[in-house]
Every structure is written in C-alpha cells, then in structure tokens.
Amino acid sequence: MSISSQSDLVSAEISPHEFSQLWRASRRESLGRAWYKFSRNPLSLIGAGTVLFVIILAVFAPYIAPYPEHVKPFTDFANASNPPSSSHWFGTDEIGRDILSRIIFGYRFSLTMGLVVLSIVVPVGVFLGLVAGYFQHTWFDTIIMRITDIFLAVPPLILALSVASILERNLLNSMLAVCLTWWPWYTRLVYGITTGLRNEFFVTSAEITGASKFHILFREILPNCISPVFTKMSLDMGWVIIIGASLSFVGLGVQPPNPDLGTMVAAGRRYLPDEWWMSVFPALAIVLVVLGFNLFGDGLRDLFAAENS
C-alpha cells in the first residue's frame, strides 16, 4: 500500500450518519441470517406461530371472543352445560358461559403472569449471577450462591404453593410467589457463564487496561449471557404459565369469576367425564401455549448454539 493511499484512508471522513447506516446494514445482515436459520426448522416456526397466535388472541380478546360479556358475572341457565356446537364451539359451562370466550380471555391472565414474573425475575437473577460469578471465591459469592442453592433445593411448585397460601388470594400475590421461586435459576445460569468468562483474555485485557468493574460486568460479560438467557426465558414462559395455572387450580391464584385457565380446569373437574368439554378445552389451551413457547425456545437455543460454534 502506497503512502498516499494510506493517508487517503485516514482522511476519508466517515460521518456519524454513514457510520450508523453501515452499522445498521451489518445488523440487518446478521438478523437476516438468523431468521433464515430459524425458519429452516419447521418445529421452531410452529412454535413461533403458536406464540404469536396466542398473543394476538390475548391482546384482541374483546374483538375476537364470540361472547365477551360471558367473562363478567353472567348466568344463562337455559344454555348451561351445552356440548360443543356451532354457536358455542367449545361448549358452555355449568352456568351457561361460553368456554371459548373464557379461554381467550384466560390467555390474558396466563401471559400477564409469564411476562410480569419474567420481567421481575430475569434482571434480579442475572444481576446477582453476574456479580457473584465475577467476584468468585469471595464472601459475596458464597452468600449469594448458598441462598440460591437453598431456593433451588425446594421444588418450585411446593415453594410457590406455600408462599401463595400465606398471602391473600389474588393474581398479584401468586405472581409474587412464583417470582420468589424462579430467580435462582437465572442466577445459576449467569453465574456459570460468568465464572467461565472472567478468565478469558478479553476480560483480562479490559481489566489490565484499567476498565471499570461496571464496564467489565455490563459491557464485556453481559452481552455474552444474552442468548442463553433469552433461550431460557422463552422456555420458562411455558413453565411459569403452568405454575400459575397450578396455583389457580388449587384456588390460590386468579379468583372466579375471572376466567383463568387453571381455575376453569378446576371448576370443570366436578363434571367429568360426562361434561368433559368444561375442563378438557381449558387444559388443551394450556398445552397449546406451553408447547408453543417450548418449541419456540428450542428453536432459539439451536440458533444460538449454531451462532456460537
């Protein structure tokens, strides 16, 4: 390379605008590649489609549900316990409410449960895992990780049940109970990644150049935790929804007449097996959303695994 062309390169001004354009272009390219890989697996696509479908149902429930008024206190004994028909696709329950409408509204509670729990649990768990992992073999690490171990030793459902049964029975408290059982999983996950990364040369290099602890934790290590955490989040959505439904099944979560899927399964249980539609359709609705999130999460995991190799 001649001297003149070298100086041309340096003097070639790249404006902030051009810089951001180039950056966005490379970003688009890698996103496009990721979508291509993801879309090659039919199961991931089915999962993503199911999740999208459920989200649309929940968001637009008042417009989609055939009988939105059946969600509020409502009785119609003339049409009670009707089997599935063209007017009530999933049948009606013991006081004449349309089960399909109640399932569609029930998704609102399920998704709220999952989203609220994860958006509280993930930042807390990730932060504790990062700090404990980076300061491995210090008193801070010991305290955090022993508390984590104690929580992990109790089965999540049992712990959530016992916490929720102490508190007043409503959605907020059942979310609180699930939060309390769920953060250690993220702490463990991020702790493992962080302890592996803290001796990598790029972290060492930042340390010996004089980078702050904040920079190392949140700029160097955290970006490397993003993909496993996102994968776990999409898988956990399903699990949290199941735990939430279990709590309302035993009567500790959403209270009637609010249409929670778990509550509906519990209510229809008394009429099994003759009037099976009352609990089978809500149960299938739970299966659908959990399966959707699991397939979607598996697809994400494969995508990130391919990216890292």
Partner: peptide
C-alpha cells in the same frame, strides 16, 4: 495474548473491542 480466539469479545464488533482502551486512555 497467546490465544487470539479468546482475546476479543465475541459479542462486540471489532470497533467496539478496539474502543475499550481508547475510551479509558
């Protein structure tokens, strides 16, 4: 360092990797 594979942060661009010492010094 010896191992170029772990010398650079895999989740950050080359520019972001090079910016670490620049921002400090």
């Amino acid at each position: 360092f010896q191992d170029p594979g772990s010398s650079l942060n895999p989740r950050r661009t080359i520019a972001q990797n090079l910016a670490v010492p620049l921002q400090i010094h």
